[in-house]
Computed example of a mutant assay.
Amino acid sequence: MGNLGGTGELRPAAAGDAVAFVGMMQQLKERSGLTYRQLEQRAAERGAVLARSTLADALRRRALPRAEVVEAFIRACGGNEPEVHAWLLARQRIEDGPPMVQNLPRAQPGYRPQAQHGDRPPGQPRHGARKPHGKRRKPLLLTGAAALAALLVIVGVRLLIGDGAEPQSTAAAPLPTGEVSIRPASAPGLCVTDGRVLRAHRYRTVAVQRPCKEAVPPRTYLKVAGADRYRIQWDHPDEGTGCLVLLRDPALDGLLEPHDDCTPTGPAERFRVESAGKSVYRIRPGDGDDRCLAVQGGGGARGTVVRAERCTEADSQKFLIGPEE
């Protein structure tokens, strides 16, 4: 898998359609030298489900395989996190199709069309032509209608191709994956990690905020879990690996508890992560739940529970996500 993710002959970003994407998956299987049964076993060893019949069917078809199949297959072939992410991004791009803006004409680099200034009155020389000898005539003032037309044309041209200034980028930075820190935007010195709280007559390990220097272990990982979906995984040297599950029992509703089943078909939540500014995000539970993760009560104290609640514009529902420092 060393040739994946931008180097070597297999680059999923170069696949232009589903057929090319599946063709690269077929090449990858051939290069791996693994049978369908061996790939199934290797996926199971990594906590994923990849039935050999499902994979064989996916590699025979001309349609895009499901994101879960692609992820499990790349991992079974030895892919690391950046490579898995690259394959899933390429799959999503093909599924979404080409953006509409690709059909718009593109201005040549450095080219700026001249704005038109209305009709040329009879007898007036064309722009750039020499005028007859004699006293220089003052430029004619445009009539109200012509001035308005000129203004609209100039504004339209600038909106289309820019006014010569460097465009300001409004695109959000790519969401980091792998080992990360998740910090409440309202208290950036704290990190989301595990903590023990008393709920429903017993102590439970749930998501809380604590000072970042005390937040590891466990180590926190953001894992791609399909198109625009992510799992939050904790790796603890004593407790093992667990992925956050949103509890929905009445006494525990909204709390986040780690579960040791991180497989695509397991109970682990597949979160939606939405940009709310530069490196600032809202984290929503999976499909069918319109809530957002928030620091309970908006407090900045250590040990405060992180739970799902009705989405608002409150800072307590905004999180900083970045590589682990």
Results as ranks from 00 to 15, higher is better:
141 L>F: 10
127 H>K: 10
183 R>D: 03
192 V>E: 03
169 S>I: 14
200 A>W: 08
113 P>I: 13
126 R>P: 02
190 L>S: 03
170 T>E: 09
182 I>T: 07
206 V>D: 10
112 R>C: 02
155 V>N: 08
187 A>L: 02
202 R>A: 13
209 Q>C: 03
148 L>C: 06
150 A>P: 01
166 E>C: 00
208 V>T: 06
153 V>H: 11
197 V>D: 07
172 A>E: 02
215 A>E: 01
212 C>L: 03
173 A>L: 12
183 R>Q: 06
169 S>K: 04
206 V>W: 06
172 A>T: 04
182 I>V: 15
140 L>E: 14
190 L>F: 08
115 A>L: 08
204 R>Y: 07
152 L>K: 14
168 Q>C: 07
159 L>F: 13
126 R>W: 05
180 V>Q: 00
128 G>W: 04
112 R>T: 09
174 P>T: 02
173 A>Y: 04
145 A>T: 14
145 A>M: 03
139 P>Q: 05
111 Y>K: 08
193 T>K: 00
128 G>I: 03
106 R>L: 14
143 T>Y: 03
122 P>W: 01
148 L>N: 08
195 G>M: 10
190 L>H: 05
106 R>H: 13
131 K>D: 12
104 L>N: 07
147 A>P: 02
168 Q>I: 15
192 V>C: 01
137 R>C: 08
125 P>Q: 00
104 L>C: 06
209 Q>L: 03
134 G>E: 03
200 A>G: 02
111 Y>L: 11
113 P>N: 06
194 D>S: 09
197 V>E: 12
176 P>S: 02
178 G>Y: 06
180 V>D: 01
182 I>F: 02
130 R>Y: 03
103 N>L: 15
185 A>N: 06
143 T>S: 12
131 K>L: 11
150 A>C: 09
189 G>V: 02
135 K>V: 15
157 V>G: 04
163 D>Y: 01
168 Q>P: 01
137 R>Y: 05
209 Q>N: 04
161 I>P: 00
138 K>N: 06
126 R>Y: 04
198 L>F: 15
215 A>R: 00
207 A>Q: 05
169 S>W: 04
194 D>I: 11
176 P>E: 00
209 Q>D: 05
189 G>W: 01
192 V>F: 00
132 P>F: 09
143 T>I: 05
129 A>S: 11
189 G>H: 07
114 Q>D: 09
132 P>R: 07
133 H>D: 10
206 V>F: 07
121 P>W: 01
125 P>T: 05
216 V>G: 01
207 A>D: 07
172 A>C: 05
200 A>Q: 11
144 G>D: 12
110 G>D: 04
215 A>V: 01
111 Y>H: 13
172 A>I: 01
191 C>I: 02
132 P>S: 10
161 I>E: 12
105 P>L: 12
170 T>F: 10
195 G>P: 07
181 S>V: 15
172 A>S: 09
198 L>A: 13
119 D>P: 15
199 R>N: 04
178 G>I: 08
155 V>I: 15
169 S>H: 05
175 L>P: 02
110 G>A: 04
216 V>F: 05
182 I>E: 04
173 A>M: 10
140 L>G: 12
166 E>W: 08
111 Y>Q: 11
172 A>Y: 06
180 V>E: 00
112 R>I: 09
123 G>R: 08
207 A>V: 08
156 G>D: 11
150 A>K: 13
107 A>W: 05
189 G>D: 03
176 P>V: 11
153 V>I: 14
204 R>A: 10
128 G>H: 08
120 R>T: 13
198 L>K: 10
157 V>L: 15
